[in-house]
């Protein structure tokens, strides 16, 4: 028991209070600045309602999420096994690692021209960008996860007579899973950043498109801000899913320093 353990009410009270103060500040800051372009919170709420009424908001959210679902899903499906393999065979990683390390710092946005050449302007390009952006962090996390498995666990596994395949499935993978989850979580965050950027350039639907479109078609900053808030809220929700995963007991051990 620590003294600074927050009470249950505090868990909700402080974030709500912070958000409230922020809204009040925003409201009066807009009034004080006498801006007629930048909307206050009420106007943004009205904009969001308008989008809901027209039925575009749900459609755009669905489009953005499905792009992330496909691109990120593919990156996970290919990246985890690939990373596990690289971690398992150090010789293979020596060959591939320099390439990965070089590709990794390239911003996914720098790939936009390449994506357009390869796939044209459209959905496939956006999905490709999301795939690229999430693939490398997933590979690297999975590879390092395997490499960092304490040798004691592998030895214990071998001691109980496990074949190499079983050892990978029953010891190395679960031992590396907390690190893999961290990689997946980071990659999902990046994927969500990238989908918005990709939609600004390459497609005509989605939340990123909404931001650009609302601005271009008549400076509707209330819609811009509404879209931005949606982007933030969904990003937060996606992150919370992973935080939930990290709480599972067969994974949580990897996140507790004192364990």
């Amino acid at each position: 028991m620590t003294l600074s353990q927050p009470g249950k009410w505090e868990k909700y009270f402080w974030p709500v209070l912070t958000a409230g103060i922020f809204l009040v500040f925003w409201h009066y800051a807009v009034i004080a600045s006498k801006s007629n372009v930048f909307p206050g919170p009420w106007k943004v709420l009205g904009g969001a309602q308008e989008l809901m009424r027209k039925g575009v908001l749900i459609g755009y959210i669905r489009d953005s999420l499905s792009r992330v679902g496909v691109g990120y899903g593919l990156a996970m499906l290919l990246g985890v096994p690939f990373g596990l393999t690289l971690g398992w065979y150090p010789a293979a990683s020596q060959v591939v690692n320099p390439v990965i390390q070089m590709m990794r710092p390239i911003s996914p946005l720098a790939w936009i021209p390449v994506a357009i050449v390869l796939f044209g302007v459209g959905n496939t390009s956006a999905v490709f960008l999301i795939f690229l952006a999430s693939f490398f962090p997933i590979v690297v996390a999975s590879m390092n996860g395997v490499r960092n498995v304490p040798s004691m666990y592998r030895r214990a596994g071998r001691n109980f007579g496990l074949s190499p395949g079983k050892l990978l499935a029953k010891v190395v993978f679960p031992a590396a899973l907390p690190q893999i989850i961290v990689g997946l979580r980071i990659a999902l965050g990046i994927a969500w950043l990238v989908v918005v950027a990709a939609e600004m350039l390459a497609v005509d639907s989605g939340l990123g498109y909404l931001v650009i479109d609302a601005r271009n078609s008549g400076n509707r900053y209330d819609l811009v801000i509404a879209a931005m808030i949606m982007i933030g809220v969904i990003g937060l929700a996606l992150d919370l899913i992973f935080r939930r995963l990290e709480q599972i007991k067969s994974i949580r051990w990897g996140f507790r320093l004192e364990a």
Partner: peptide, 10 residues
């Protein structure tokens, strides 16, 4: 091993 040999995910 010392206690650390148990598998924490099980």
């Amino acid at each position: 091993f010392q206690e650390r040999g148990v598998f924490p995910w099980l």
